[in-house]
Design a protein around this nucleic acid. Structure first.
Lengths: 338, 338
DNA sequence: AAAAAGTGTGCAAACGTTCCCAAAAACGTT
DNA sequence: AACGTTTTTGGGAACGTTTGCACACTTTTT
């Protein structure tokens, strides 16, 4: 803010003390006498003193803020993660700065670098579906920026990671479709290079195997842009339907809603016959028609855990070398009988 | 970031220049010779120099960042607004910091004050449904913090505002219900003190009047918490249904989805007979069952316009005294025949 | 030939903090 | 009374910028 506000200097002058004394009194250091502390605190209260975080950041070379990169906030899963992040961050006096990659590698890189130059103390990131090359992150990490990945994590990067139990989530969902009598189960999923894509595909395959159903690669469709473009989805649906699936398992929030939309638009008749199961954290699934069985990720919890890990890295006195990958369980929410 | 990074001083030393010259060269000031500029720029490029925004903020007493307060980001309308805000802000080299009030006055005030102490240059805010007292905003405004309100605006605050044409949106939606043969139209709406509540109620009344339908106050239900608690909604639905409405007009995004959910849960049979029209920016309406007619607000545009106004205030050399209230048209999206 | 104007650069202060180091005050101890 | 300790305070540099002012050097004007 541009306007005048009282500073530590003003307080010092008014009280006939030095700025150092005031600073220390405000930070409740042991060296300052109780008396002086009381005096300073009272006066500070009176003039409604607020420490200037900018000055503090400059001096301490940290900003007490952490950066978040998600593909978009208009996504149930991510907005819930963000709520989890905030719940911890605010508690520990960190500020969060949210940036959206819109599933674009270029945008992601730009945002990360922007954040880094804004002096964030740490970064929480879920990679965009386009991202292949994470060297730019390695560089920042090497320079000392703590990074924690969540949801979409790279395989070859040594740091803390927080993910859902994607294998089990997929397995459960696919098994659910099988148990409800489906045998030709399509799989619509994200960009092939995403960690979640691989893990979820593995779960899907494992469920098929358990029930001795042959895995047919042509039933799997990848969406490079994670369903950001409706054309992409309609194309996938168009290619899938001739194979006559009786069930479909969809591997991400955006994809799930987008796919149902595409189905409904292009083949409304089929839409209601197909058994649908998909990852989604939408709190509106109960309203959907056709209805579906959903795999819910523990989004809020994921945000919390990731933030705790990040803050522990930020505040560690010595470089952290032991890293964990926390795996949180998903929840299968059965289709509501309408 | 804590790690070492090159500064203007380093460049100066390396090139045998003074920091002032380097600073000026980087900012492309006329006083510096082309030759020196080229030299500095090249070297800066080489060492990948990034100006430290913190230092700059401290010196210039502004942060190049603007604060946003919305009730929650997990809301289609608000996340679209935010996208609009970012589209302008990033263009003009501002950073945005998003905070959520979760429809709580206390939280809102806390967040605003937190942002203010973080030296934001301006504030974009949609009031929480609980907010009655905006004196704390007046104070900040008086101290020089530029504020632009959007969507939920106070009546008695002289500054720029951006709103949707709530009257017309409501009128159209209500008229649509009437034209489809409904006569007993309930109205579910937000907290009574919100600007949007009043305007939307007026539109609803006007449509009734046009068709000579008597306005019945008991058909209007207010939700103090804007539908944040499902109990609130279920209670409202419970009170409304005995009056045997054949249509319902709902006045906000959260309320619309929440109400349909409550209807479906408590009275699934009624849910499909009732004609529903409501404000919502959900891009999933096509999936909803029962389906509804929706009033879409120009959310993205609203964000853009509000941000332009805010930045114009921030960058104005003299205090702004002429204020505008921009009114943007809503769009009525008819129920899709399922 | 001197004065004026123009050009390019550097010095140093300032923004609001924190913290190292020294100095002063208060208190014991011989 | 002189000296150590301990407790409390102040001076001042530093964080990385920006910018007003002064300076030195050229070039133009009179």
């Amino acid at each position: 803010m541009r306007f005048e506000t009282s500073t530590i200097k003003d307080i010092a002058k008014a009280l006939g003390l030095s700025t150092s004394t005031v600073s220390r009194a405000l930070r409740d250091r042991y060296e300052i006498s109780e008396e002086t502390k009381k005096l300073v605190l009272a006066y500070a209260e009176k003039v409604n003193y607020r420490a200037n975080p900018i000055a503090r950041s400059l001096k301490e070379r940290r900003s007490y803020s952490i950066g978040i990169i998600v593909s978009e906030i208009a996504n149930n899963f991510f907005s819930q993660v963000i709520n989890g992040i905030e719940s911890i961050a605010y508690d520990k006096d960190y500020h969060v700065i949210i940036s959206q990659s819109h599933e674009s590698y270029k945008q992601e890189k730009l945002n990360v670098e922007h954040l880094a130059s804004r002096s964030i103390d740490g970064l929480l990131i879920a990679l965009s579906s386009e991202t292949q090359d994470i060297d730019y992150l390695r560089e920042l990490y090497a320079k000392g920026l703590p990074i924690v990945f969540f949801d979409r994590v790279p395989g070859d990067f040594e740091t803390h990671k927080v993910i859902a139990n994607n294998f089990k989530g997929s397995f459960d969902a696919t098994e659910h479709l099988i148990l409800s009598g489906r045998r030709t189960i399509a799989h619509l999923t994200n960009s092939e290079n995403l960690s979640i894509t691989k893990e979820r595909l593995a779960g899907y395959k494992a469920a098929l195997a358990k029930y001795h159903i042959e895995f047919r690669p042509e039933l799997v469709k990848y969406c490079q842009h994670g369903g950001m473009h409706s054309a992409e989805l309609e194309q996938a649906v168009k290619e899938l339907l001739p194979l006559k699936p009786d069930g479909i398992f969809i591997s991400s929030d955006r994809l799930t809603t987008g796919c149902i939309m595409a189905l409904k638009k292009t083949n409304p008749d089929v839409a209601h016959k197909l058994a649908i199961a998909g990852f989604t954290n939408s709190n509106l699934v109960d309203l959907f028609s056709p209805s579906l069985t959903s795999v819910k990720q523990p989004a809020f919890e994921m945000g919390r855990v990731a933030t705790e890990l990040l803050i522990s890295m930020i505040e560690a006195k010595r470089p952290v070398t032991e890293f964990e990958t926390k795996v949180l369980d998903t929840e299968l929410v059965h289709m509501t009988k309408r």
